[in-house]
Simulated assay, not measured.
Amino acid sequence: MAYAGLTTERLTLAGAELADEVGFDQVTVSELARRFDVKVASLYSHLKNSQDLKTRIALLALEELADRGAAALAGRAAKDALTAFANVYRDYAREHPGRYAAAQLRLDPQTAAAGAGRRHSQMTRAILRGYDLAEPDQTHAVRLLGSVFHGYASLEAQGGFSHSAPDSEVSWSRILDALDALLRNWPDPEPGA
């Protein structure tokens, strides 16, 4: 019998909050049961196991990021869109470190297709329309942007820039300027490549 007041959605949100507090790797059904002061078995009518919980947290995080990204992109193009979208990722990683880590969880293709992962790719491609990139360069640029956004957010979260000059805000701004310049002047492929 399901414990009164517990739903899959409520448990997923609580798991996401737990991830932000203790780290995504530390999230388990057992830890969640302790939070609700119930027996672990009470949660299995809502969740299959800890991996199911983590997958649900990842999907929630991807959806939250996609919603923020869509709102940030509205009415923007080219560099303004690039900057707004990049800031969404960086801000989300700062505000929700556990959820951000969850968003990096490798999902099986069927689960990923049903979630917000595709929206992220579509939004990134929408930004790139302002730079007039054709395939396969558009795919290369999507991978570049994802790598830079995730790499910077991850290094910053680990304190990688806290003890060096210049300030990380200055670096972030310069990196976005450099990405804009690169996208405006995307190199032609090598002949025969």
Rank of each mutant, 00 (worst) to 15 (best):
133 L>A: 04
107 L>I: 00
84 A>L: 08
49 N>C: 11
24 F>M: 12
41 A>K: 13
37 D>H: 15
133 L>D: 02
25 D>I: 02
66 A>K: 01
99 R>W: 05
85 F>A: 15
134 A>D: 14
108 D>V: 10
71 A>V: 10
65 L>W: 05
81 A>V: 04
86 A>R: 01
62 L>I: 06
33 A>V: 10
73 L>N: 02
57 I>P: 02
40 V>N: 11
29 V>Q: 08
148 V>Y: 07
148 V>P: 05
39 K>Y: 00
53 L>E: 04
35 R>G: 14
27 V>K: 04
69 G>R: 01
101 A>Q: 13
31 E>R: 15
147 S>Y: 08
27 V>I: 11
106 R>D: 14
87 N>Q: 14
130 G>F: 04
70 A>Y: 01
74 A>Q: 04
130 G>M: 01
143 R>V: 13
30 S>G: 10
47 L>M: 06
78 A>L: 04
101 A>S: 13
30 S>Q: 15
84 A>W: 05
38 V>N: 00
117 G>A: 06
51 Q>M: 08
41 A>Q: 15
34 R>I: 07
142 V>G: 04
57 I>M: 04
87 N>S: 11
106 R>H: 13
22 V>R: 09
65 L>V: 11
50 S>Y: 10
78 A>K: 07
40 V>T: 13
95 E>A: 15
34 R>D: 13
99 R>H: 05
34 R>V: 11
134 A>V: 11
52 D>S: 08
95 E>L: 14
40 V>C: 06
133 L>G: 03
107 L>E: 00
148 V>K: 08
118 R>K: 12
84 A>N: 05
58 A>Y: 03
109 P>F: 13
100 Y>K: 11
97 P>D: 10
69 G>T: 04
148 V>L: 11
133 L>I: 01
44 Y>V: 09
84 A>S: 10
117 G>P: 00
77 A>K: 01
149 F>W: 14
60 L>Q: 03
41 A>I: 14
136 P>Q: 07
117 G>C: 03
139 T>F: 05
97 P>F: 09
138 Q>F: 02
62 L>Q: 09
53 L>I: 07
44 Y>I: 09
22 V>G: 02
77 A>Y: 01
61 A>Y: 01
85 F>I: 12
142 V>T: 05
93 A>Q: 11
141 A>D: 01
135 E>R: 07
96 H>P: 08
100 Y>D: 12
78 A>C: 09
52 D>G: 07
124 T>W: 03
104 Q>Y: 05
119 R>K: 06
143 R>D: 12
120 H>K: 02
113 A>K: 15
32 L>M: 09
71 A>D: 11
84 A>K: 06
98 G>Y: 00
61 A>K: 04
131 Y>W: 03
118 R>W: 06
113 A>D: 14
64 E>L: 06
136 P>V: 06
60 L>F: 03
139 T>V: 09
91 D>I: 08
60 L>A: 02
62 L>W: 05
